[in-house]
Structures are given as C-alpha cells and as structure tokens.
Design a protein around this nucleic acid. Structure first.
Lengths: 237, 237
DNA sequence: TAGTTTTTATGATATATGTCATTTTATTAA
DNA sequence: TTAATAAAATGACATATATCATAAAAACTA
C-alpha cells in the first residue's frame, strides 16, 4: 500500500468532482471538514460498511469504485448503486437514524474519507445549500431505485443485462476514450446488477457478442454499438 | 359529491396525523399554508397527477387513499407506494425539479390540498425542521424502494403476495378492529404491487385461503393468521 | 329487473430462466 | 513454472410463472 505516493489534497482544494454535495459548501466549512475527516484505505474486495452495523458517519470517496448491494434472505446479492470518486456513502442510513442496510464493497483499491455523524450534522444545519444538495441526492437515488425496481419487475433478462451495461458505461465511462467499459466486474457481479444468475448472464453476454453489439475480450467488455445496446435495453428517456 | 357535508379544518387545526411533515411547522407558517392551499376532490379511479406532467406543486391528502404507480414500457403497472390521510405527494419530482414519474391514482374518493411549488419552497427554506422531515421522508422512501426491489428480484410469487398483504395491513389497518384489511383492491391491483399477473395472484390468494392464513369474502380480504402470513412472506425484521 | 361489463376463477399449455453438472480457461499463489 | 483456485463457458434438464382460453360470479347501469 504505497500510501506515500498518493497526493492527498485537503477539502479546501478538492477538485475530484464538480457537482459533489460539498462543492457548494463555504470555505470555512470546508476547513472544518479537513480537520474532522479521517482517512481510510480499502483493498479491492474489502467491505467498507456491513449491513446492520450502526451508522457512525459519512464516507466520501477520494479514489476508487464502490458497489452498494443488498442481501436477500437467501443470501443472494443485489447491487443497487455504484459510487466513485467524489461521491458520498452512508447518508441514507445516517439521515434516517438507521443501521446500514446496504453493504458497500470496494471494487478496486479505494481511498475514503470518513466524517463523523455529529460533525456532518453540524455543517448540515449551518448550510441550507448543503441540505438542499442532500435532498436532491436522495430524490435522485429514489428515482433510480424506482426505475430499477420496475425494470427488474418487468423487463426480460437480455433487456436487464443490456441496461446494466449501459448503466456501467454511463457511470464509469470508457477506458481512455475507447470502447472498453472502465470497470472490471465478474459475470456474477453483472448478474447481481441485473437480478439474474451467473450462467444466464454469461449466455446473454455471449449472445450480445454474437449480435455484434458488444465484444468480450477476457474480462473487458467493449461496447461496439451503444445505440443498439440502448435499444436492446428498451431504454426510452 | 356532497362537499358541504365534509368539515374541512384549516391547517392550523389539523389533526389528521401526528407525524406528518408539517406537524412541526410553526403556527405562522401553518397560517401561510392555509392561505396558500387549494382544495381538490378526486373520485375513485381518478388520476391526481400523470406521469410526465410538469411538477406544479405539492399535494397533501386530507382524506382518502392513493396509489402511486409506475408504468413499464409494455404499459404494465407497478405500484410503488401508497399514501393516505396526512401524507404528502409529489415531493420527489418537485424537489429534483423533475416531471412526475409516478402517476398517482385515487383508490377511493379523495380530498386533497394543493400547495404551489413556490410557496412550499418558501416555507421549506424558512423552516429547517421541515427540511429535515423531508430528508427523513425521502430516506425512508428510498429504504422501502430498495427493499421492494430486492423482494421482487429474489422472492417467489407467494412470498411477494404475502408480503403485499402484510404491507396493506400495516398501511391501512383493519376495518374497525376486525380482521378485514381496510382497503379495497382488485386482484389485478394486488398483482401490480407484487409484480405478477392477475391469474397468478388469484391462484395464490386461493392457496393462502386454503391454508387458513387468510379468508376471502368477496373483495374483502381477512387476515386470519398474521404471524403465519409474515412467515410466508419471509419477512424478518 | 334485465342486460352489459368487469372481475374472479380455473384449466391447459408454453416458455423464459433457473438449477445442476462438467469442461475449459483465466487468475492467483507457492 | 507448476499447482491450486476461481471464473467463464456450455449442455441437459427442471420448474415457476406467464399466457391463452373459457366459464362463473359479481358489480354496475340503463
């Protein structure tokens, strides 16, 4: 963990995102954030918080990619959201005074800041712009969750898999401007986004490959025809 | 529509709920609400707002029951939430400056107050307690939506139908302390909660009836053994 | 009250997707 | 580099649930 190599900027000089919830916060409050924040590293595969743990603060991703999932009664995982550099985590549970209900797992090595609940609430109360940002964040999450709900309830597997790929490309983009989706996932994890099994996911990806819509190269997924993929996903918006 | 018979109290004397979002609002702001509110009646089956319509305000249910659904690409409906006396509607779209994404339909005759967006935002900005309530409301909605998502993705039909019945009983209670769920729904609507078809819903309800867990009397559904129903739904929380 | 429409009920059948088993291919560790 | 482990791929088969068809009952409505 060559921590010394990573240059970590203070919150007051943060440039990781242009539309994060803290972007509109005052210089003074950013200073408070700096003093209050703790810093954690997580290796790929590590759990950032466990389902059922009591909420102790807010996480802010400085680098890396995170998946938020939820475990069904049978133990099967459902991925409900992704988070990347500049995003915050844990606010849902924190704000409804709840235990965490969706375990977060590092999809690659992550550098994450932790802000205590008390300190966050303090800044939140003194900054109406921030609370408006949080409201918008929650609204958008709710909108996505409802959309995912209806997709899983009503779409076929190939539509859901296609949609999952579109979501991944929208969220993480391409590897330096190419056609390769900029995130590494196993087939089983893709299954956990689309709400299906690993085998069915493999078969479906192979089918999309044969149709010339995507190209599978090892674990990399290239999107050859995004328009067709969106069509296959029956996304109209 | 014997409107004269219904006694409508001003917001300052509102007693319809003890935990509504406006319950903690100051007397002064309640007065403003009174002056600002418009009043609408909707007959059973009428749509309160349509998907895609531009957001013009916030709805507050004075009496009646409402279902919020979402239409899939194939036109099939998925019910995502219910609202009843004291609940508010339309805040999700309003707060993310969006068109409505979930049409709301009156499940019985409804009396609904309408508050303009501007006036609501005005009160919201002047009342930190209110904005905190809204944050909590959104958090809870998000939690439920994620739960419903994983249920529909992973549970079997009988589990989902059982869970839907438990939800209905929790939300609307029993008809005067008895065993009859205090809401009238068609089998097709129950299917739209559980994310299945009308036929499968009918068969499943008959099965639960045969098992002695519920008792179907015309359109009324009686819950004979709530504990067993919860077990059947695989609800553990 | 009779007639029309909607809802509930039930059977027969189809099918998408899950499950289980096995092989091949990658990835990781020793 | 080899061994060990994990992931991907593919086939055979099972099954839950959808779909289609029809009938019976209930709820409107003229």
């Amino acid at each position: 963990m060559k921590r010394g190599k990573i240059e970590i900027k203070p919150c007051t000089e943060c440039t990781v995102s242009s539309n994060g919830v803290f972007c509109s916060v005052s210089e003074k409050n950013l200073g408070i954030l700096d003093q209050a924040r703790g810093s954690n590293f997580y290796k790929k595969g590590q759990t950032i918080f466990y389902e059922g743990n009591h909420t102790n603060g807010l996480f802010c991703i400085y680098s890396g990619k995170v998946k938020l999932s939820k475990l069904g009664e049978n133990g099967k995982e459902q991925i409900i959201r992704f988070a990347k550099t500049g995003n915050i985590l844990g606010y849902r549970s924190l704000l409804s005074n709840d235990t965490y209900h969706a375990p977060a797992t590092a999809m690659e090595d992550c550098h994450v800041f932790l802000l205590s609940k008390d300190r966050f609430m303090e800044i939140l109360e003194s900054d109406p712009k921030l609370s408006m940002n949080i409201v918008q964040l929650l609204s958008n999450d709710l909108k996505s969750a409802e959309q995912l709900l209806i997709d899983i309830a009503q779409k076929s597997v190939i539509e859901r898999i296609s949609e999952s790929l579109v979501l991944l490309q929208k969220t993480f983009g391409y590897v330096n401007g190419g056609k390769t989706i900029n995130v590494a996932l196993t087939r089983s994890e893709i299954a956990d986004i689309a709400g299906t099994t690993t085998e069915t996911t493999i078969r479906t990806l192979v089918q999309l490959d044969k149709e010339g819509i995507i190209k599978l190269v090892d674990k990399k997924i290239n999107i050859l025809d995004l328009q067709k993929l969106i069509q296959r996903a029956k996304i109209y918006d």
